[in-house]
Design a protein around this nucleic acid. Structure first.
Lengths: 209, 209
DNA sequence: GCCGTAAGTAAACAACTGCTGACTTGCCTC
DNA sequence: GAGGCAAGTCAGCAGTTGTTTACTTACGGC
């Protein structure tokens, strides 16, 4: 487990029957993390608020207190995900971005945030949440495209953006298939094995011709 | 929703209040098709048996009569999908298979079976259904690999299979993103626009080096 | 030390889910 | 035309879901 998060977890080693320490920000964070993992892993509908609250070791009613509703919590998860996944330097090379995505796919820091990417494939049916999701996906694709030298006023802008979105689709597809099936050898391929085909894919789609 | 679905629907233009024509095989088929569309479009959990029966214009109880349970119906959908998607000639070229997949992605016969591929990304939680799904995915990947000249005893068999599975992931990812978001230009790209990047992708991953 | 506020709890709600059993009705055979 | 049987209907069950409400309790300022 990561230290950074556990700081918020109220007294990790205490007797669970002891009355809970009061820390609004902490419990909020706890709920957010549990929800993100469960939503990503099992999807929105398959995840119940009781699952989440139980995983966080927190009362169910607090979900509605802090996030208004289940979809409110889901929206918060999405908005939070962009912050962590989004820390990408401005002028990154295609090689670098390919390696980064591969690392995410391989689940390097799986312990902390399992399948963070998967959250972007989960649908809630809520319109507002869908917009957030779409926004994240769009900006991801744009960043991918710009790493390939794309610029907004490019004459065949659409083509490059399309290619980037195809590459993004591939990454997400891999992520989903690895997580939700035992499809071998894909499911248990390490970062090394994954890097080669994925780098090929990126190069084929995005390198300047 | 699509009005006319199939030849199997008993007397399409009749007064709906009139007593239903009795045709067990027909109703079964009707349920299968409605279920396949809804499962593919909205996922397993988000689709209720009442949704399905309503879409099929059939009584809810018949789902349990003909398919035992909701997951039974889902399994039947999966098993059925392999038959239709699986009609691929033995020695097909890489180019041909690429075109076929592109056609599926573009939704050429969307009217009949929207997003057939999506069904392969839907999880029910049921172990038996997961096995069916896994089996289909695996055989798809193998067919893709063998179109690239792969043979089971190949020395680096795993590597080729992995590449094929990555390609398959890409196809499924594209399908999912097109269906579940308005991500442009990907979402409304035609068969032409899709063919180019996807063919690149296939070639990069699967062409003999 | 007291006390108000905010954090956390418990129980129950209404709606929805998959499923079942007893019932009705149309079709085919004799 | 009568009767048997399969196809289809109906109402309701038991469990789950998200959410709310009224309650209890810890913490910090006075």
């Amino acid at each position: 487990m990561s230290a950074a998060q556990d700081d918020h977890r109220p007294e990790a080693g205490t007797d669970p029957r002891a009355p809970r320490r009061r820390d609004a920000a902490g419990t909020r964070q706890l709920l957010l993390e549990s929800a993100r993992d469960l939503f990503a892993t099992n999807g929105y509908r398959a995840t119940t608020v009781r699952d989440i609250s139980e995983a966080a070791g927190v009362n169910v009613a607090l979900i509605n207190r802090y996030f208004t509703s289940k979809v409110g919590l889901f929206q918060a998860c999405l908005s939070g995900a962009v912050n962590e996944l989004g820390a990408v330097p401005r002028n990154i090379s295609l090689e670098q971005i390919s390696s980064r995505i591969t690392a995410q796919l391989a689940g390097v820091d799986k312990a902390r945030h399992p399948h963070q990417l998967l959250l972007l494939l989960r649908t809630s049916g809520d319109e507002q949440a869908e917009e957030i999701r779409l926004g994240i996906l769009h900006s991801f694709a744009e960043r991918l495209a710009s790493a390939a030298g794309w610029e907004p006023e490019d004459p065949d802008s659409d083509r490059m953006l399309l290619h980037a979105q195809v590459a993004l689709s591939a990454a997400l597809g891999i992520s989903l298939l690895r997580a939700s099936t035992g499809l071998e050898p894909l499911a248990s391929a390490g970062e090394q094995e994954l890097a080669e085909p994925f780098h090929r894919l990126i190069t084929a789609l995005l390198s300047r011709t």
